[in-house]
Simulated scan of single mutants.
Amino acid sequence: MNIQVQKSFETSPGGAADAVSGKLFLVGTPIGNLEDMTYRAVRTLQEADIIAAEDTRQTRKLLTHFDISPGKLLSYHEHNKVASGPELIRFIIEGKNLALVSDAGLPAISDPGSDLVKLALAAGISVIPVPGANAALSALIVSGLPTERFTFLGFLPRDHKEREQLLKSLEDREETMLMYESPHRLIKTVESLLEVWGDRRIVLARELTKRYEEMARGKVQDCLAWLQEHPPLGEYCLVVEGAHPDQVKEKRDAWWQSLTVEEHVRHYETEGEMTRKEAMKKTAADRGVAKRDIYNQLI
Rank of each mutant, 00 (worst) to 15 (best):
L227E: 02
V190K: 00
E175H: 11
K168G: 13
V240W: 00
R217C: 02
R276T: 11
W197I: 10
M215F: 15
R211Q: 14
L208S: 01
E175F: 08
R206P: 00
K210G: 05
E171L: 10
Q165K: 15
D246Y: 08
E263V: 03
E263N: 10
R185P: 00
Q257L: 08
K277C: 01
L238G: 00
L193E: 01
Q257N: 11
K219W: 02
L194T: 06
E241F: 06
Q257V: 13
T176I: 06
M179H: 09
W197R: 11
R217S: 00
H264S: 01
K168L: 13
E273I: 07
K251Y: 13
S192Q: 09
L224N: 02
H230N: 15
H267Q: 11
W256E: 09
T270D: 11
R163C: 12
Q221G: 06
M179W: 04
L170W: 03
W226E: 09
K281S: 14
S182F: 08
K251V: 06
L208F: 10
D253V: 04
G242N: 09
K219Q: 11
E229I: 04
R201F: 04
W256S: 10
A279R: 02
I187Y: 05
K251I: 05
H230L: 07
P232I: 04
Y236N: 01
L186K: 01
M274G: 07
